[in-house]
């Protein structure tokens, strides 16, 4: 079959490219120049212990703003595409009631998961984690509620308000960085604090908390619009 042959030829070519790349790969013996800069200057520049967080929030902060904007667009497009869908063809099986165990368990677990998400994004400048991970964890708390009670009406307005308020505050902090410190999204608008304590690294915890709320709201909205059956 010619289609399958073409597919195989394409993949074989790609595989050859990958093989050449793999054979020519040699792990660097030392850091390259940009990584060396980050390794040496992150503490004096930003005060963050987690260099990945410093890169995401401060050094490449504008990219992150773009990224959350892309996520917002995605959530909006998903909601738009799914609105007003046609009814399912064929009889729809009724919703099965969820069990007592799931109900009780989710009442216990949802606040804990949300708290853990907040912990993850507030400690993003010190330990592994940050706004995106925390936001995803908060969205999974939301997912658990959704699985427990699919018929529950979630407040779209609350999700939309959280999303837009944190997005606006994020941009406002960026502009404050232009006015008070070195440039857009500079974290030195707040005192640097002591290295390694939770209230350190200037505005990084604040920005990461806003990113966490925004990402959590966006993921929740995507999950909601994909899970809601048309009424």
């Amino acid at each position: 079959m010619i289609k399958r042959a073409i597919a195989f030829a394409l993949l074989a070519g790609l595989g050859l490219v990958f093989l050449a790349l793999w054979q020519g790969f040699e792990p660097d013996p030392s850091l390259n120049r940009s990584a060396l800069y980050y390794a040496e200057n992150t503490v004096t520049d930003t005060g963050a212990a987690n260099i990945v967080a410093a890169v995401i929030v401060t050094y490449r902060g504008l990219d992150t703003l773009g990224e959350v904007t892309v996520l917002f667009l995605t959530a909006a497009i998903v909601a738009m595409v799914l609105r007003g869908g046609l009814a399912d063809s064929g009889p729809r099986p009724g919703r099965w009631p969820t069990g007592e165990l799931l109900h009780t368990g989710s009442r216990l677990l949802v606040p804990l998961i949300a708290l853990f998400g907040a912990y993850v994004f507030l400690n993003g400048h010190l330990t592994p984690g940050g706004g995106f991970q925390g936001g995803a964890i908060i969205a999974s708390a939301m997912l658990l509620m959704l699985l427990t009670d699919p018929a529950r009406n979630f407040s779209h307005r609350l999700i939309a308000t959280t999303e837009s308020v944190s997005g606006l505050a994020y941009v406002a902090i960026g502009l404050a960085g232009m006015a008070l410190a070195g440039g857009f999204l500079d974290n030195r608008i707040l005192p640097m604090g002591e290295f390694g304590s939770i209230l350190s690294a200037g505005a990084i915890p604040l920005i990461y908390a806003l990113i966490g709320l925004k990402v959590g709201a966006e993921f929740s909205s995507i999950l909601l619009s994909l899970s809601e059956r048309e009424k």
């Binding site: 660097d28 990945v52 890169v55 490449r60 990219d63 990402v215």
Partner: peptide, 18 residues
């Protein structure tokens, strides 16, 4: 190790979900 690819992949995972 190099932090830049990690930051890049973190972005890529989130956009991948989108």
């Amino acid at each position: 190790i190099d932090p830049v690819p990690q930051a890049l992949v973190l972005t890529a995972i989130v956009i991948g979900l989108g």
